[in-house]
Protein backbone atom coordinates (compact mmCIF):
# COMPACT_ATOMS: atom_id res chain seq x y z
CA UNK A 1 0.00 0.00 0.00
CA UNK A 2 1.68 3.13 -1.11
CA UNK A 3 -0.94 5.64 -0.07
CA UNK A 4 -0.98 5.91 3.68
CA UNK A 5 -3.55 8.66 3.70
CA UNK A 6 -6.15 8.88 1.03
CA UNK A 7 -9.05 11.27 0.76
CA UNK A 8 -11.47 11.31 -2.09
CA UNK A 9 -14.04 14.01 -2.62
CA UNK A 10 -14.39 14.80 1.04
CA UNK A 11 -16.91 17.48 1.93
CA UNK A 12 -17.58 18.90 5.36
CA UNK A 13 -20.35 21.39 5.92
CA UNK A 14 -21.11 23.21 9.12
CA UNK A 15 -24.65 24.52 8.89
CA UNK A 16 -24.13 27.08 6.14
CA UNK A 17 -20.37 27.16 5.86
CA UNK A 18 -18.54 24.65 3.77
CA UNK A 19 -15.30 24.02 5.61
CA UNK A 20 -13.89 21.44 3.24
CA UNK A 21 -14.97 21.28 -0.35
CA UNK A 22 -14.37 18.16 -2.44
CA UNK A 23 -10.91 17.50 -1.16
CA UNK A 24 -8.91 14.69 -2.68
CA UNK A 25 -5.51 13.92 -1.34
CA UNK A 26 -2.99 11.10 -1.42
CA UNK A 27 -0.03 10.86 0.88
CA UNK A 28 2.60 8.20 0.45
CA UNK A 29 4.48 6.23 3.06
CA UNK A 30 7.36 8.07 4.62
CA UNK A 31 6.40 11.38 3.14
CA UNK A 32 6.27 14.71 4.93
CA UNK A 33 3.25 16.45 3.55
CA UNK A 34 2.53 20.06 4.33
CA UNK A 35 -0.97 21.41 4.26
CA UNK A 36 -0.43 25.09 3.75
CA UNK A 37 -3.19 27.56 4.13
CA UNK A 38 -4.38 30.64 5.96
CA UNK A 39 -6.42 30.51 9.15
CA UNK A 40 -9.87 29.10 8.67
CA UNK A 41 -8.98 27.32 5.45
CA UNK A 42 -10.30 24.01 6.73
CA UNK A 43 -6.94 22.48 7.60
CA UNK A 44 -7.92 21.58 11.13
CA UNK A 45 -11.28 20.27 10.02
CA UNK A 46 -9.55 17.95 7.58
CA UNK A 47 -7.26 16.73 10.31
CA UNK A 48 -10.13 16.17 12.71
CA UNK A 49 -11.93 14.15 10.10
CA UNK A 50 -8.82 12.05 9.52
CA UNK A 51 -8.75 11.24 13.22
CA UNK A 52 -12.39 10.30 13.28
CA UNK A 53 -13.22 13.16 15.65
CA UNK A 54 -15.67 14.69 13.18
CA UNK A 55 -17.58 12.99 10.46
CA UNK A 56 -17.41 14.19 6.88
CA UNK A 57 -20.66 15.24 5.27
CA UNK A 58 -19.68 13.43 2.14
CA UNK A 59 -16.82 11.51 0.61
CA UNK A 60 -14.46 8.80 1.74
CA UNK A 61 -11.14 8.73 3.50
CA UNK A 62 -8.72 6.04 4.49
CA UNK A 63 -5.75 6.02 6.78
CA UNK A 64 -3.65 2.95 6.11
CA UNK A 65 -6.68 1.44 4.46
CA UNK A 66 -8.92 2.00 7.47
CA UNK A 67 -11.77 4.46 7.40
CA UNK A 68 -11.67 6.80 10.39
CA UNK A 69 -15.39 7.40 10.03
CA UNK A 70 -16.20 3.73 10.49
CA UNK A 71 -13.39 2.57 12.76
CA UNK A 72 -12.01 5.61 14.56
CA UNK A 73 -10.37 3.54 17.28
CA UNK A 74 -8.40 1.48 14.78
CA UNK A 75 -7.17 4.67 13.16
CA UNK A 76 -6.27 6.28 16.46
CA UNK A 77 -4.12 3.27 17.29
CA UNK A 78 -1.90 4.06 14.32
CA UNK A 79 -2.07 7.80 14.16
CA UNK A 80 -0.37 10.16 16.54
CA UNK A 81 -1.90 13.59 16.73
CA UNK A 82 -0.16 16.75 17.82
CA UNK A 83 -2.50 19.73 18.14
CA UNK A 84 -1.50 23.37 17.99
CA UNK A 85 -1.86 23.72 21.74
CA UNK A 86 -0.95 20.56 23.52
CA UNK A 87 -3.26 19.93 26.42
CA UNK A 88 -1.38 18.71 29.46
CA UNK A 89 -2.68 17.75 32.85
CA UNK A 90 -1.07 20.51 34.79
CA UNK A 91 -1.08 18.72 38.11
CA UNK A 92 0.73 15.73 36.71
CA UNK A 93 4.44 15.72 35.97
CA UNK A 94 5.65 15.56 32.39
CA UNK A 95 6.41 11.91 32.74
CA UNK A 96 3.07 11.10 34.29
CA UNK A 97 1.36 12.83 31.40
CA UNK A 98 3.23 10.54 29.04
CA UNK A 99 2.62 7.34 30.96
CA UNK A 100 -1.09 8.14 31.04
CA UNK A 101 -1.19 8.26 27.26
CA UNK A 102 0.89 5.11 27.02
CA UNK A 103 -1.42 3.25 29.34
CA UNK A 104 -4.47 4.44 27.43
CA UNK A 105 -2.83 2.84 24.43
CA UNK A 106 -2.72 -0.44 26.24
CA UNK A 107 0.86 -0.55 27.44
CA UNK A 108 1.50 -1.98 30.89
CA UNK A 109 2.80 0.16 33.71
CA UNK A 110 6.35 -1.06 33.24
CA UNK A 111 6.39 -0.58 29.49
CA UNK A 112 4.87 2.87 29.83
CA UNK A 113 7.48 3.87 32.30
CA UNK A 114 10.28 2.70 30.07
CA UNK A 115 8.89 4.28 26.93
CA UNK A 116 8.20 7.57 28.66
CA UNK A 117 11.78 7.80 29.88
CA UNK A 118 13.12 6.96 26.47
CA UNK A 119 11.02 9.52 24.66
CA UNK A 120 11.65 12.25 27.19
CA UNK A 121 15.31 11.68 26.55
CA UNK A 122 14.77 11.95 22.82
CA UNK A 123 12.88 15.21 22.96
CA UNK A 124 15.35 16.60 25.46
CA UNK A 125 13.09 16.87 28.47
CA UNK A 126 14.61 14.29 30.77
CA UNK A 127 15.87 17.03 33.06
CA UNK A 128 12.29 18.19 33.65
CA UNK A 129 10.44 14.92 33.71
CA UNK A 130 9.43 15.10 37.36
CA UNK A 131 8.39 18.73 37.06
CA UNK A 132 4.69 19.52 36.97
CA UNK A 133 3.65 19.91 33.35
CA UNK A 134 1.76 23.07 34.26
CA UNK A 135 5.11 24.76 34.85
CA UNK A 136 6.50 23.85 31.45
CA UNK A 137 7.17 26.61 28.95
CA UNK A 138 5.30 26.68 25.68
CA UNK A 139 8.16 25.08 23.78
CA UNK A 140 8.60 22.40 26.40
CA UNK A 141 4.90 21.59 26.30
CA UNK A 142 5.08 21.23 22.57
CA UNK A 143 8.03 18.89 22.86
CA UNK A 144 6.19 16.94 25.51
CA UNK A 145 3.32 16.82 23.03
CA UNK A 146 5.61 15.36 20.40
CA UNK A 147 6.74 12.68 22.83
CA UNK A 148 3.08 12.11 23.64
CA UNK A 149 2.21 11.50 20.01
CA UNK A 150 5.14 9.16 19.56
CA UNK A 151 4.57 7.02 22.63
CA UNK A 152 2.03 4.85 20.87
CA UNK A 153 4.54 3.98 18.12
CA UNK A 154 2.45 5.53 15.38
CA UNK A 155 3.02 4.91 11.72
CA UNK A 156 1.41 8.22 10.85
CA UNK A 157 1.78 11.50 12.69
CA UNK A 158 -0.61 14.34 12.07
CA UNK A 159 0.33 17.78 13.32
CA UNK A 160 -1.92 20.78 13.40
CA UNK A 161 0.16 23.94 13.35
CA UNK A 162 2.80 22.34 15.55
CA UNK A 163 5.12 25.32 15.64
CA UNK A 164 2.59 27.90 16.75
CA UNK A 165 3.98 30.14 19.43
CA UNK A 166 7.44 28.63 19.74
CA UNK A 167 10.49 30.86 19.48
CA UNK A 168 12.60 30.67 16.28
CA UNK A 169 15.30 28.51 17.79
CA UNK A 170 12.70 26.16 19.18
CA UNK A 171 11.01 25.96 15.81
CA UNK A 172 14.27 25.02 14.16
CA UNK A 173 14.89 22.26 16.66
CA UNK A 174 11.35 21.08 16.34
CA UNK A 175 11.48 20.86 12.57
CA UNK A 176 14.74 18.99 12.73
CA UNK A 177 13.15 16.58 15.15
CA UNK A 178 10.30 15.92 12.76
CA UNK A 179 12.69 15.30 9.93
CA UNK A 180 14.79 12.96 12.00
CA UNK A 181 11.67 11.06 12.93
CA UNK A 182 10.80 10.46 9.36
CA UNK A 183 14.33 9.36 8.55
CA UNK A 184 14.70 7.06 11.53
CA UNK A 185 11.29 5.51 11.83
CA UNK A 186 9.89 5.99 8.33
CA UNK A 187 6.86 7.71 9.80
CA UNK A 188 4.47 9.47 7.47
CA UNK A 189 3.91 13.04 8.55
CA UNK A 190 1.03 15.30 7.67
CA UNK A 191 1.43 18.76 9.04
CA UNK A 192 -0.64 21.84 8.62
CA UNK A 193 0.76 25.28 8.90
CA UNK A 194 0.40 28.79 7.70
CA UNK A 195 4.13 29.35 7.97
CA UNK A 196 5.43 29.00 4.51
CA UNK A 197 9.09 28.87 5.38
CA UNK A 198 8.76 26.01 7.77
CA UNK A 199 6.76 24.02 5.30
CA UNK A 200 9.21 24.80 2.55
CA UNK A 201 12.03 23.64 4.74
CA UNK A 202 10.92 20.14 5.63
CA UNK A 203 8.04 19.06 3.44
CA UNK A 204 8.45 16.74 0.50
CA UNK A 205 5.15 17.81 -0.92
CA UNK A 206 2.93 20.73 -0.20
CA UNK A 207 -0.75 21.27 -0.76
CA UNK A 208 -2.03 24.81 -0.84
CA UNK A 209 -5.37 24.85 0.81
CA UNK A 210 -7.61 27.88 0.72
CA UNK A 211 -11.24 27.99 1.78
CA UNK A 212 -11.73 24.30 1.80
CA UNK A 213 -10.23 23.70 -1.59
CA UNK A 214 -6.90 22.35 -2.60
CA UNK A 215 -5.59 24.87 -5.09
CA UNK A 216 -2.31 23.29 -5.97
CA UNK A 217 -0.24 20.36 -4.90
CA UNK A 218 3.21 18.98 -5.43
CA UNK A 219 6.81 19.53 -4.45
CA UNK A 220 8.11 23.05 -4.34
CA UNK A 221 9.37 23.04 -7.94
CA UNK A 222 6.23 21.65 -9.45
CA UNK A 223 4.16 24.03 -7.34
CA UNK A 224 5.97 26.90 -8.93
CA UNK A 225 5.28 25.44 -12.29
CA UNK A 226 1.64 24.97 -11.50
CA UNK A 227 1.09 28.27 -9.96
CA UNK A 228 3.09 30.53 -12.20
CA UNK A 229 2.58 30.93 -15.87
CA UNK A 230 3.19 27.48 -17.16
CA UNK A 231 6.40 26.76 -19.06
CA UNK A 232 7.81 30.21 -18.82
CA UNK A 233 11.28 30.99 -17.57
CA UNK A 234 12.68 34.25 -16.39
CA UNK A 235 16.25 35.45 -16.42
CA UNK A 236 17.85 38.59 -15.17
CA UNK A 237 20.70 39.99 -17.20
CA UNK A 238 23.05 42.76 -16.22
CA UNK A 239 25.50 44.24 -18.68
CA UNK A 240 27.98 47.07 -18.63
CA UNK A 241 26.12 48.67 -21.52
CA UNK A 242 22.66 50.13 -21.23
CA UNK A 243 19.84 47.71 -20.75
CA UNK A 244 17.81 49.13 -23.63
CA UNK A 245 20.29 47.98 -26.19
CA UNK A 246 20.40 44.47 -24.79
CA UNK A 247 16.64 44.26 -24.77
CA UNK A 248 16.47 45.42 -28.35
CA UNK A 249 19.12 42.94 -29.41
CA UNK A 250 17.42 40.01 -27.73
CA UNK A 251 13.96 40.74 -29.12
CA UNK A 252 15.41 41.17 -32.56
CA UNK A 253 17.03 37.74 -32.30
CA UNK A 254 13.94 35.89 -31.18
CA UNK A 255 10.52 37.43 -31.33
CA UNK A 256 9.14 35.00 -28.77
CA UNK A 257 11.21 36.65 -26.08
CA UNK A 258 9.65 39.27 -23.87
CA UNK A 259 11.80 41.76 -22.09
CA UNK A 260 11.26 44.28 -19.39
CA UNK A 261 13.75 46.60 -17.83
CA UNK A 262 13.91 46.82 -14.11
CA UNK A 263 16.47 48.69 -12.09
CA UNK A 264 18.93 48.86 -14.98
CA UNK A 265 18.69 45.13 -15.59
CA UNK A 266 16.90 43.26 -18.29
CA UNK A 267 14.33 40.72 -17.29
CA UNK A 268 13.77 38.18 -20.00
CA UNK A 269 10.83 35.84 -20.20
CA UNK A 270 11.05 32.92 -22.58
CA UNK A 271 8.91 29.92 -23.32
CA UNK A 272 11.81 27.53 -23.38
CA UNK A 273 14.60 26.89 -20.97
CA UNK A 274 17.78 28.75 -21.74
CA UNK A 275 20.73 26.55 -22.45
CA UNK A 276 23.39 29.22 -22.77
CA UNK A 277 22.12 30.83 -25.95
CA UNK A 278 21.17 34.07 -24.30
CA UNK A 279 24.56 34.78 -22.78
CA UNK A 280 26.27 33.65 -25.93
CA UNK A 281 24.24 36.07 -28.05
CA UNK A 282 25.01 38.91 -25.70
CA UNK A 283 28.72 38.27 -25.59
CA UNK A 284 28.98 37.61 -29.30
CA UNK A 285 27.43 41.00 -29.94
CA UNK A 286 30.15 42.73 -27.99
CA UNK A 287 28.36 43.39 -24.73
CA UNK A 288 30.04 42.97 -21.40
CA UNK A 289 27.99 40.52 -19.41
CA UNK A 290 28.16 41.27 -15.71
CA UNK A 291 25.63 38.84 -14.34
CA UNK A 292 23.23 36.31 -15.61
CA UNK A 293 20.74 34.79 -13.20
CA UNK A 294 17.83 32.48 -13.49
CA UNK A 295 14.99 34.10 -11.61
CA UNK A 296 12.84 31.74 -9.65
CA UNK A 297 9.82 32.80 -7.79
CA UNK A 298 10.03 31.63 -4.24
CA UNK A 299 7.02 30.09 -2.70
CA UNK A 300 6.73 33.40 -0.91
CA UNK A 301 5.47 35.12 -3.99
CA UNK A 302 3.23 32.24 -4.85
CA UNK A 303 1.85 32.14 -1.39
CA UNK A 304 1.16 35.84 -1.37
CA UNK A 305 -0.45 35.67 -4.73
CA UNK A 306 -2.63 32.75 -3.82
CA UNK A 307 -3.69 33.92 -0.47
CA UNK A 308 -4.68 37.24 -1.80
CA UNK A 309 -6.56 35.46 -4.52
CA UNK A 310 -7.93 33.11 -1.96
CA UNK A 311 -9.29 35.86 0.14
CA UNK A 312 -11.21 37.51 -2.63
CA UNK A 313 -12.36 34.12 -3.75
CA UNK A 314 -13.54 33.41 -0.26
CA UNK A 315 -15.19 36.70 0.48
CA UNK A 316 -17.24 36.23 -2.65
CA UNK A 317 -18.36 32.87 -1.40
CA UNK A 318 -19.30 33.49 2.20
Amino acid sequence: MSNVIQLSNVVKKYKEVTAVNHLSLKIKKGEIYGLLGPNGAGKSTTIFMLLGLTEPTNGEMFVEGVSPTVKPIEVKKRVGFLPDHVGVYEDLSGKENLTLTARLNGFSKLESDYKADELLEQVGLSHAKEKKAGKYSRGMKQRLGLADTLIKDPSVVIMDEPTLGIDPKGIQEFLEMIQRLRDERNITVLLSSHHLHQVQQICDRVGIFVHGELLAEGDIDSLQQQLLDKNSYQYEIETKESADRVAKLLTSQDNKIQTTIYDGKVHVTTKKRDEGELSKTIIDNGFHLLSFRKMSYGLDDIYQQYFQGGDTLGSGKI
Binding site: L51, L53, I73, E74, K76, K77, V79, F81, P83, H85, V86, G87, V88, Y89, T101, L104, N105, G106, D148, K152
Partner: peptide, 10 residues
Protein backbone atom coordinates in the same frame (compact mmCIF):
# COMPACT_ATOMS: atom_id res chain seq x y z
CA UNK B 1 -7.32 21.07 25.63
CA UNK B 2 -6.74 17.75 27.33
CA UNK B 3 -10.07 16.54 26.01
CA UNK B 4 -8.63 16.57 22.52
CA UNK B 5 -5.57 14.70 23.67
CA UNK B 6 -7.57 12.00 25.39
CA UNK B 7 -9.95 11.74 22.47
CA UNK B 8 -7.12 11.19 20.02
CA UNK B 9 -6.14 8.07 21.91
CA UNK B 10 -7.63 4.76 20.82
Amino acid sequence: KTLLRIMSQP
